[in-house]
Write a protein that binds this DNA or RNA. Structure first.
Lengths: 260, 260
DNA sequence: CGCAATCTTGAGAATGCTCAAAAGTGGTGG
DNA sequence: CCACCACTTTTGAGCATTCTCAAGATTGCG
């Protein structure tokens, strides 16, 4: 279940969309997948009330859990991962604001993998009851969430291609391109830059490389003038070349206009 | 085991479950996920009528397609894959009898990957209309199919772990264990043996290894007395040791008793 | 200011790759 | 029924990418 943190705790609330009237990341994300009506948006805006903060490197859902609510990332980054017998960790997905942790909770008895924060996060838990009673104008929300799950599947397949067959430098290039597009979709990129609050160890556990090699590969990307990366902030200096290098084609992210 | 089926049309009828009153692979697969009523089974048995044969190495669904029906594998093996710019192919899933190719057809505009047969297959196409009108006792079928999709997701995550972090010999050991369990679930394993109609090139494209290294790794598995593999038929000689080597834990396959 | 985590660098080693060619297999048409 | 052809499997040899180990530099946080 969720680790010992109660909703009430305030972990120094950052300046965030929470205080303004802007749509939260979940709304932005789902709006890219289905056209949401005003009532749907209003309903989704309500999740802010249930939001709470979680520090970095904290389990959100453990392997074997049977969560009783749908967990949504509103700010920060989290990841899905599996542990191998020796303790090695393979990250199988990044969760960014607007992403859903366990959409299939209704059908899946227990989690086959775990979810943990990478950076400090703001998170909401949607009650299973509330979700299953969405109907009428609101079941567009369910459809949008299902579509989001399909995009997650597509991302996972793309990661398998990445790790299964691309060289180190291409893997990282591809990952950085994907994250740019995903952050853009929820309004969290400025131009070709975004915050990437993960360590090189995290990148290593994502790409199937050693930390040492991740480090050297990042240096090579910088040397080639493709990226700048300092203080957990990534600036892509030459997106076209980075895309070519990473063999990146955004089609699998379904970022076109919302399909009718 | 009722027989409510019309005597099969013959596409050069092989000796197969088709001619007997046995449940087809789809029924067996879904029955492992939900308890099906007799009417659900009868409905599923009807797909035999729409079955047709496809030779090996033939595309079933191309990337970019928007299929108008749900494709089901009844016999043989197929795979999902993506092609990289240079032509390299990464296989992202094996489809065995009882598996569904494109369950999300209602929500996904176009396929982000392709599906092709590996061996000669018998395949059925379920009309989208027919599926969307399943209701009452039959919507248990929909539930079972959704659960099957979740298992596919879990398998994909496990493959990412496999390719992202295990050594060559562990990767192949893991894959062989997984396939044993999946074939067993649809009654296609005899003891610890099963037909594995894929080439070493296919295995290479699956595991992210070169064909040469696959070949040498298979020899090592034989040398250690873990497997026998000839004429596309795999016999696992020491399942316990193969599981340990492959770090295989069947939990992610949801093969327990059907969950209520 | 100091600890702990993270990043960086060096050097040697291993796993797995490429290229190339030979040997085996199965299907097909003459 | 055999010969041939394409595909697949196997083997050898050298090499590249990436890993491991280890230590030193840097950063961020309390």
């Amino acid at each position: 279940m969720m680790t010992d943190r109660r909703p009430g705790r305030s972990f120094k609330t950052l300046t965030s969309s929470e205080t303004s009237g802007e749509p939260n990341a979940l709304i932005r994300r789902l709006e890219g997948l289905e056209s949401l009506g005003t009532d749907a948006k209003a309903w989704l805006a309500g999740i802010e009330e249930a939001a709470f903060s979680v520090p970095a490197r904290t389990d959100l859902i453990a392997e074997g859990d049977a969560p009783d609510g749908l967990v949504v990332i509103l700010e920060g980054m989290a990841c899905r991962f599996k542990l191998r017998p020796g303790g090695a960790r393979q990250i199988t997905a990044y969760l960014i604001p607007g992403d859903l942790c366990n959409l299939d909770l209704a059908l899946r008895p227990r989690m086959d993998h775990a979810i943990a924060t990478l950076s400090p996060c703001r998170v909401a838990r949607l009650d299973f009851e509330a979700l299953s009673h969405l109907s009428g104008d609101l079941d567009i929300v369910t459809r949008a969430m299902r579509r989001a799950a399909l995009v997650d599947d597509a991302i996972l397949r793309e990661w398998l291609v990445n790790v299964g067959s691309r060289s180190a430098i291409r893997r990282i290039a591809h990952l950085f391109c994907e994250l740019l597009m995903r952050f853009r979709a929820v309004g969290l990129a400025r131009g070709d830059s975004y915050e990437l609050p993960v360590s090189q160890l995290d990148l290593a556990e994502t790409t199937g490389l050693s930390t040492v090699h991740v480090n050297r590969t990042l240096q090579e990307l910088k040397r080639q003038g493709l990226i700048e990366l300092r203080a957990r902030s990534l600036m892509i200096r030459n997106l076209a070349r980075l895309q070519t290098l990473g063999e990146f084609d955004a089609g699998y992210l379904s970022l076109g206009e919302p399909i009718a």
